[in-house]
């Protein structure tokens, strides 16, 4: 076989294989949306789930997913920003820094089920939080911190060093300069990273089944006092999320319309993740434009 012909054949094969990947995604999206979208209605999005009958919704699960997401972001955002500042501003090239970086790398590659089990052991059992929003949010924080921290570090590093010198030369501390000058400039990158990781957290289930639990008690949406047991805001109640719900009805298979509910819920999940992706881009660009004023 001559070189020209093998070049042509190889190119053809590469085209075909790349095409297959595109087809797989198309098939996935088509399958989920075609099966799921017809099932999505206002009733489906707001009604509570049914255990043994048809026609249940995902209202509580949807609320739980958002509540958990917000709570875990509230906990992990400041920690990741402080930790990211340490890595980009204060970490000296020495052994301690090596240990820190290795730890973060290990944490980011841990299977999420291990993070979930750790959360179960420490937050649910040892700390006595039980299967609760709080345990779930803390587990998600553990799961989320390494990526967020690295994103903050990278975003801060992308701001020119001369900006730090400008602050220092005015008698400001490195800390003030970073908080008030560098951080605002790095914000577009940080926000983009946060929203993307929010999408990841929104779809996460393995870290939650033994921390936030697998049950969704009926909520009383008229009482928002966080100390009331059926209050949507009560952080100590168990809270099955949308992703956990999909897993659960498929593994236990008690409800008769499991396939339809799963398809609908999957479609909602995918649409949410898509929205997070689009939002990340839009907001990142917008913040960037506002900050630079150009």
């Amino acid at each position: 076989m001559n070189a020209k012909r093998s070049d042509k054949i190889a190119t053809g094969v590469l085209y075909a294989m790349s095409g297959i990947i595109v087809l797989i995604l198309a098939l996935l999206l088509f399958y989920i949306l075609a099966n799921g979208l017809p099932h999505i209605s206002w009733h489906f999005l707001t009604a509570p789930a049914q255990s043994f009958e048809k026609g249940g919704g995902i209202g509580v699960q949807l609320f739980n997913s958002f509540y958990l997401l917000i709570l875990s972001m509230v906990i992990s955002t400041p920690i990741s920003i402080w930790a990211g500042i340490y890595l980009s501003e204060y970490a000296k090239p020495n052994r301690l820094t090596n240990i820190i970086r290795t730890s973060i790398e290990i944490l980011s590659s841990l299977p999420s089920v291990v993070v979930g089990l750790f959360g179960f052991l420490v937050f649910a059992v040892q700390a006595g939080f039980g299967f609760s929003i709080l345990s779930g949010a803390l587990a998600l924080t553990v799961f989320n911190l390494p990526l967020l921290t690295r994103n903050v570090e990278d975003s801060l590093r992308s701001v020119a060093f001369t900006q730090r010198e400008a602050g220092l030369a005015l008698g400001l501390s490195r800390w003030e300069t970073v908080i008030h000058v560098i951080l605002p400039e790095a914000l577009p990158g940080i926000i983009t990273g946060m929203i993307l990781s929010a999408g990841r957290v929104f779809g996460e289930a393995a870290a939650l089944i033994y921390t936030a639990g697998q049950s969704a008690p009926t909520l009383d949406f008229t009482n928002w006092n966080p100390f009331y047991i059926a209050s949507p805001l009560n952080p100590m109640r168990p809270a099955e999320t949308l992703a956990v719900h999909i897993w659960k009805i498929n593994s236990e298979g008690i409800i008769p319309d499991a396939a339809a509910v799963s398809a609908g819920a999957s479609a909602v999940l995918i649409i949410a993740v898509l929205l997070f992706n689009i939002l990340a881009r839009l907001i990142g660009n917008k913040v960037y434009k506002r900050l630079t004023g150009v």
Partner: peptide, 21 residues
């Protein structure tokens, strides 16, 4: 050193205004 730099100011080679007003 922070106090000292208030009294010994510096202007750099490349203009480095903050991205503020």
């Amino acid at each position: 050193t922070y106090e000292m730099r208030k009294h010994i100011g510096m202007v750099f080679q490349r203009p480095n205004p903050f991205s503020k007003s």
